[in-house]
Each structure stands twice: as C-alpha cells, then as structure tokens.
Design a protein around this nucleic acid. Structure first.
Length: 432
RNA sequence: GUGAUCGUAGCUCAGUUGGUUAGAGCACCGGGUUGUGAUCCCGGGGGUCGCGGGUUCGAAUCCCGUCGGUCACCCCA
C-alpha cells in the first residue's frame, strides 16, 4: 500500500483544528444572523457550464472538473459560490421577498498550486444583499463584515477596509484624458500596481494614452490611501472641483453605521473581476503584505447574466485561510475551544464500577455532556487529572455506597443522592 | 505551468571525516506510590532515517532522480 496522503492543498481537521474551524463557522453564522441574513447552501459541484458563464473558458484550467464514466456532462467542484447564488436567485427572482439577504459558508476548490494564504480547498463566508440599490446597502454589507472582524477580536488598528468605486475611478481616468473604451485595461493595470516597479507602471499608464501630467497624477493618487474624513484632500489631489458624489454618499452611510474608523479610501482597489459595477472594497491587514482577508463590491449586472431579471446586488467573500493565518500571527486564536464536558464520571472502588454506566446514561438523557474514564485504576488523583484534562466542569466520583460531585474550578466536593445528581450538575445561567 | 528551499518518532531535535541491533526531551498509552487535580517511580507503543536508484566491504550520512511540505512568480472568482 503506498502512502495515503491527503490531496495536495487540502487539510485534515483533527479535533483541535476542527474545534477552531467550527468556532469560525459559528462566528460567521452568528454575525450573519444578527445582521439579518439567512443561510443558504448549494451543491458542492455544478455543471462546468455554470462556471463558464461569468468567467469564460479560461477558468477551466483552474477548476477540478470531471465527467462520469460514460457520461456526457462535464461537472466541476465549485471554485466559488457566486455562480450558484446567481443561479438560485435568477430561478426564483420573482417570488423571493426583497431585499434578498443571504449568507453561506461553503467550501470551495481551486486547482492552483498551494502557497501561503491559498490552498486547494478552503471555506469562504459569502454575504450578499440583492434587490436593493444605493449606498445604504453597500454600507450594511461592509458593516456586517466589520461586525465579524470585531467579533473575532480584531481592532481598527489591525485591519482596514479599503474602499473604492469603479465609477469614480472611471470618471477620474476620463478626466485625465483616458479613452472610455480603455477603462477596463486601466482597471487591470491598477489591480496589478502593487506588484510592479514604479517606472514600469508609469510606462504602461503612458501606453494607455495618458500624457505625462495625467500619468503622474494617476500614479500618485492610486498609490495613496485617504482617511474617510479626508475626502477634501482626495478631491484636491484629483484636481476635481467637487468631491465625487458616489464616494461621499457611501462615506455618509458608513459613518451612519458607525464604522468610519475601520475604513479608508484607496482608489487603487478595483478588484480583478470584470463584473463589479460600483463600490468595491478589500480588507487588508494594516501594514501587512499578505493577500486580502476579504473582498467584494457591487455587481448589478450579474443576475441578468445568469438569466434572471435586472437586480442590483452587493456582497463579499472571506476565506478561512488568510484569516486564520492572521489571527495566528496576532495570537488571537483562542485556546481550548473543544466542547467542555459537564461531567467526567469514574469509579473510586470496584463496587462503584458497576454504577458508572447507569450514572452516565442518566446524565446523558438529561441533556448533559457526560464522559467517563475507561481506565481500571482507582487512583483518584490520576482520574481527577484526567477530568481536568478533559476540561470537565464536574468530576463525578462513583463509589459502591455513595456518589460525590466535585466542582473542578472551586474544588467543592459533596455527596449527592442519585436523584439529585442531574439537577446539581445542570449548568445554571451565570455560573461556569 | 516556472523558480527557490526543506524532508530522522506525533512535536522539537541529536546522530562524531560513511562503521555493530538509529537516540533524547516532550507528547501519548498502561500501572504504582491504599488514593483528591502537584511532584515522583516503573513499564509500553511508535521510525524500512520521504521514496527509488547509484557509489562503497558498509549509507540517515556521498551522488542522481522522484514525491511531499513551505515560500515566491503566473493567476487570484
């Protein structure tokens, strides 16, 4: 038998890792729900065709695609959730109450070589708000994202939402003399900016037909971030007579949601995707060079593209890999996340051994998380140590003639009758 | 797909110019100290040195190849 390794770029979740993974999924869900989003789910594979709608044939090499033996249909493991979401919304667009506020936390697979922050299988939190126009929807989605970052222990010093707006950037570029049909090329160049030498960037900008002054202004502005309160400086640097209305409206809404201190403006953010139509944003670690923690924006034409009615939409995705890396670096990964037992039951003498199973059964039927020792030793010290290691709230010492409970945090020990046991061990609000 | 770098026990590592049956600490498992979370003691499982060739009387050690991990490029929905 050859070595059976997990496939490249996938992870096995042993109990320790699974405890964190579940904690993360729970946090994503908790934050989504309190922000008014409903959970959805779709298939882990779709027809290959679905993934070509948005991304074209070029996407195929990045997918795990397959065909059944003797089958005629090509399928692919989902590389992202958005096509599924668009398909689901398009299919029932006219019967769904609006706005549509959905979230999900699916896994996704991409056939790329793994590296830091990117694996071949990952989990991604998707939050989408459809059927609602205007910057208020954009801001609510951004608020939800920030609500999570705060929930997980991050502060505005740790990470920032970099906001931009495609129309504003396009407007600025036009003002600098860019031909409208070259706007997409300019977006691509902006997206690649961080990985280019300054003069190479300037040279390519010049190729777009911008003159020297325009290139300089464009370079300067796209490489700079502005505090959300500093739109005046941005306006001046852009040489505009008044602040861009779209940006001002968005800022006003974010301020109303109380998250201005998390946000900054960075017109260099355009996102690679061609389908974004307005607001775009990414979350980055402050000062960090790692890839974006999350990214999203407005995609008002997408539902149409998938055969649905015209419907405005805004959303974002956040992967588990980069986030976990960041939290690990910052020491924010919580320790001891596993499920704590309410009781750890063991026998203190041979007569007690026969009574362990009934006690455990009673506790479990009473909704308690009860574990027991599988050891034959009657060494109470050792067994208590096991109870402690299991992080149980109570040890239950079962002897032939009595049952004792020991609250491990306080070392309070008392003898209880069998019919009192369940009530005594049941968690009370406010207690541990 | 391109490039760099690393592979000895679950983890961190040791292993002398190549030389008997490859070691330690921690972790894990069982037991003891006639028992209450410490300390201590005894015992145990676990490695074909990533894998495959080659050189050699002899390879964890030298050479070649390959696989895997990590990082960067491409791409990033």
């Amino acid at each position: 038998m050859p070595k059976l390794n997990p496939p490249k770029g996938t992870r096995d979740f042993y109990p320790d890792q699974m405890a964190w993974h579940q904690h993360l999924l729970d946090a994503w869900r908790r934050v989504s729900v309190r922000n008014g989003f409903e959970q959805v789910q779709g298939p882990v594979f779709e027809t290959l065709e679905l993934y070509k709608v948005k991304s074209g044939d070029g996407i195929v090499s990045e997918l795990f695609s397959f065909r059944r033996a003797n089958g005629k249909t090509d399928f692919a493991l989902r590389p992202e959730f958005t096509p599924t979401l668009a398909r689901m919304v398009a299919a029932k667009a006219n019967s769904l109450p609006r706005p549509i506020k959905w979230f999900c936390t699916p896994n996704a697979c991409r056939a790329e070589r793994p590296q830091r922050g990117r694996l071949r299988e990952f989990w991604q939190w998707n939050v989408d708000l459809l059927g609602l126009e205007g910057p208020g929807a954009d801001a609510e989605v951004v608020f939800t994202l920030l609500d999570f970052l705060q929930e997980i222990g991050l502060k505005p010093d740790d990470a920032k939402v970099k906001l931009s707006h495609r129309d504003v950037v396009a407007q600025v570029l036009a003002g600098l003399g860019l031909e409208p049909e070259r706007t997409d090329d300019a977006f691509k160049l902006l997206d690649a900016r961080d990985k280019m030498e300054a003069d190479a960037f300037a040279a390519q900008a010049a190729e777009l037909g911008l003159d020297a002054t325009a290139v300089e202004r464009f370079t300067q502005v796209s490489g700079k971030t502005y505090a959300i309160s500093d739109v005046a400086a941005l306006t001046a640097d852009l040489g505009l007579s008044e602040p861009p209305a779209d940006l001002v409206a968005l800022i006003d809404q974010l301020t109303a949601f109380g998250v201005a201190d998390w946000c900054e403006i960075d017109l260099g953010i355009v996102r690679g995707l061609a389908y974004y139509t307005g607001t775009v944003f990414e979350v980055h670690e402050t000062g960090g060079k790692s890839r974006a923690l999350a990214g999203g924006g407005r995609y008002d034409k997408l539902i149409e593209l998938f055969g649905g009615p015209a419907m405005p939409a805004v959303g974002f995705g956040m992967g588990d890999v980069v986030l976990t890396n960041l939290l690990e670096d910052k020491g924010l990964l919580p320790a001891e996340l596993g499920d704590r037992p309410d009781a750890f039951v063991f026998a203190t003498d041979d007569a007690g051994a026969a009574r362990v199973a009934p006690v455990v059964a009673q506790l479990r039927r009473g909704q308690l998380h009860a574990r027991m020792s599988y050891k034959t030793t009657r060494n109470v010290g050792k067994l208590l140590k096991d109870a402690e290691k299991a992080r149980a709230r109570f040890a239950v010492l079962v002897g032939g003639d009595q049952i004792q409970t020991k609250h491990l945090a306080t070392s309070t020990q008392q003898t209880v009758s069998p019919d009192q046991l369940l009530a005594q061990l049941s968690p009370r609000p406010g207690a541990d």
